[in-house]
Write a protein that binds this DNA or RNA. Structure first.
Lengths: 134, 134
DNA sequence: CAAAAACCGACTGATTCCGTCGGTTTTATC
DNA sequence: GATAAAACCGACGGAATCAGTCGGTTTTTG
């Protein structure tokens, strides 16, 4: 339905939170409380972001999460894409799939354009851009 | 999951078909056969496009569908948006919904930007653009 | 009248979303 | 060393949506 899942929305909000608390180690409890997002769900989301290397974790008491690099170097696309799954906007762009109509199909190229446009917008904005209050 | 539904993909292909058969009246059977899309499903899709006024129908024997206006005047966004539902990319942009965090939320503006960018790409391309074979 | 077509609404299996839950491991502090 | 706080992990489940099917109605042509 061309919708951004709450996963991505929550993930972005968590990243914004971390960006505003740079050089601190933020326990998930604080983020979830502050943002009003389910702790358990947010855990799954941030763990994904950790696996892609955007976020680092410190375990144990007084542990928590923190950004792996400066907000200036984090493009929003890097946050959204892993959370949405890298499948691509339409099935016919997913790596494995081979559309039987590909020869005659005029629309594939179109969807590729849309996808590229979307990605470049997402990559033209950094986390730092979002937190600077003008 | 930030995916375009097959509804839209099929809808677009049907519109391309109609554009390539301008001034003909195309029975759904032909479109579905040519494009390899389920007749029954396509019927639901095209009926939606008819309701939005992009396509006109002629009932009865020797009836069928045809474009309501020239392909040059049909923006792809006009095709996709009704098929995807006008809900917006994220819940917090849907007309009725009031997010409790709206005051502090830095991301809403961001999603608005993304949505606008997407819409302008979709509206920058016409059906005519898609069928001219370069 | 018969056939061809659009029109319409109800139903269904599968998938994905959006969480929840219970338990494990790691670490800091007392 | 015990305890508590935190990250980590996998299984489960209700709800929504998707993609499609089906059966029937209405309209028009020949």
């Amino acid at each position: 339905m061309l919708k951004v899942s709450t996963r991505s929305q929550y993930g972005l909000r968590a990243m914004i939170y971390l960006a505003r608390h740079q050089r601190e180690i933020c326990p998930l409890k604080d983020i979830s409380k502050e943002e009003g997002i389910s702790f358990d769900y947010l855990e799954k989301i941030i763990s994904k972001l950790e696996k892609t290397g955007l976020v680092k974790a410190k375990k144990g008491a007084r542990g928590g999460y923190f950004l792996a690099k400066s907000p200036k170097k984090i493009k929003i696309g890097e946050i959204i894409r892993p959370l949405e799954g890298e499948k691509g906007l339409v099935k016919c762009m997913a790596g494995s799939y081979r559309c039987p109509m590909v020869k005659k199909c005029l629309s594939k190229k179109f969807w590729g354009k849309i996808q590229n446009a979307l990605n470049s917008v997402l990559d033209s904005i950094t986390l730092a851009d979002l937190i600077k209050t003008p």
